[in-house]
Simulated assay, not measured.
Amino acid sequence: MQDKTVEPTPAIQAITGGPARERVGLVVNGAVASRAVQTIVEAEAAGVRQIWMTQMPLAPETLSIFAAAAMQTSTIRLGSAIVPTYPRHPLTMAAQALAIHDLAPGRLRLGIGPSHRPTMEGMYGFKMEKPLEHLREYVEILHAGLWQGKIEHKGRYFNVFADLPRTARIPILVSTLRAGAFKLAGEISDGALPWLCPIPYLLKTGLPVLRQAAAEQGRTPPPLVAHVLVAMSEDRSAVTSATRSQISRYGKLPFYANMFADAGFPVAADGTMSDDLISSLVISGSHIEIVQRFSELLASGLDELLVLPVAVHEPDSELTRLAQLIGQL
């Protein structure tokens, strides 16, 4: 039987104030597992320091892809943004995270969140009540198991009593859209993962709430990893059209529609996003213009950037050029 060992907290838990290349990560499409692994390998070769992947409903399993990628890479950090909590018991999530940590010590950043009611209730059949309360319990269980090796939790949603074979201080980040989620992230998480939030909304609402909540708990504010869309094109009309096509479904999701309204960009009754909202979410232009915008965002108070490629004309070559741009920051 293996003894429990306590490992040091990895230095990557909060990457703030470091070189720009360390603070900008690339989103990798996980629709085909083998291609995702190859993209991660190529991103590391291009100098990218962090990749992120989203667990989409019924898509290949993200943490399994990370395990495969871990065996073919040596330094690139692997972040989930996010893995939905409802379909996975927290002990199962902890076991998967521990396996990846064994394969790639210090390289996993585990981003989790409740996802959306149409998916969790309409597809999986879960009852989604008070998702932030559910997420709070989930994070408490993961922290206890992974960081301390012992879980003694009796709550509204989970009753879990277990000893893990060893600890692994894997950063646990949470999804954030509205003020309540940013507050929760500041109180208990190792990072906030907003998705499709306009930058002014993050700076005026999300970041202040995050920092205030952390201060009230006597904690150092966790990093805010801002999600930005990037199109490697100077054709503004084509960029707007491609971006709208890629993200149009989010305007129909209530959680996002409410956040867009909070940010001053209400969507139409049918979920259609305005051109102003699209423009607020996507960065495009020349290599120099994109790098300059990255610099401005990182200087504005945002800790890191999570970069989602927007395919305009040639998806493969545009992804390659974006990875190279990030790797050369």
Rank of each mutant, 00 (worst) to 15 (best):
E296I: 02
Y250C: 08
A99H: 10
R166N: 04
R35I: 11
Q217M: 13
I15P: 04
D3V: 03
A31P: 03
L108W: 05
T73H: 06
P19H: 10
A261N: 15
K130M: 06
S245Y: 02
V225E: 01
Q2A: 11
H116K: 04
A226V: 01
T5I: 15
D235P: 09
P208F: 15
P222H: 12
A68K: 08
I326L: 04
V282H: 06
M56I: 11
H89F: 05
I65C: 03
L146K: 01
A185Y: 07
M93G: 04
S115I: 08
D163G: 09
R321K: 12
L91Q: 13
Q212C: 06
H134L: 11
G25F: 04
A104C: 08
V174L: 08
H287P: 02
R249T: 05
Q246N: 05
V209E: 14
A269D: 15
H153V: 01
R321V: 00
M120T: 12
W195T: 01
P223Y: 00
Y157Q: 00
T176A: 14
P60C: 09
E22V: 11
R293A: 01
C197E: 01
I40M: 14
D262M: 00
S233I: 05
A33W: 13
I40T: 13
P221N: 07
T5R: 09
Q292Y: 10
A257H: 06
Q217R: 11
A11Q: 15
L298G: 00
S34M: 06
R293S: 02
V27W: 15
I172E: 02
A168F: 07
I12E: 10
A261L: 13
P208G: 15
A162Y: 08
G79Y: 06
A263P: 08
T220H: 10
E318A: 01
H134P: 06
Q148I: 04
A162L: 03
A31F: 14
A14T: 04
Y124V: 09
D163L: 14
R244S: 14
I141N: 00
V291Y: 09
P171V: 12
S279I: 11
Q72H: 12
I283W: 04
T92N: 11
L325V: 14
G145T: 03
Q13F: 05
T73G: 03
V32W: 13
G251A: 12
L281E: 05
D262Y: 01
A43P: 01
M123W: 15
I170M: 00
F126E: 02
L277R: 03
F161R: 14
E44V: 15
A299P: 04
E304M: 05
Q38N: 02
T119Q: 07
M128Y: 11
Q55E: 12
T243P: 09
P131V: 09
A69G: 04
R88S: 03
E314I: 03
R219Y: 10
K127M: 01
M120Q: 14
E216G: 14
R107N: 02
W147M: 03
P198I: 08
R211M: 11
P8E: 14
V6M: 12
S284C: 12
R156M: 00
Q246Y: 08
I112A: 12
I283Y: 03
T220K: 09
T240H: 12
R117C: 00
E234H: 07
L281S: 03
T205L: 13
P221E: 07
I288V: 09
T54A: 07
T272V: 15
N29P: 00
V209N: 05
I100W: 04
I65W: 07
L135K: 02
A257P: 05
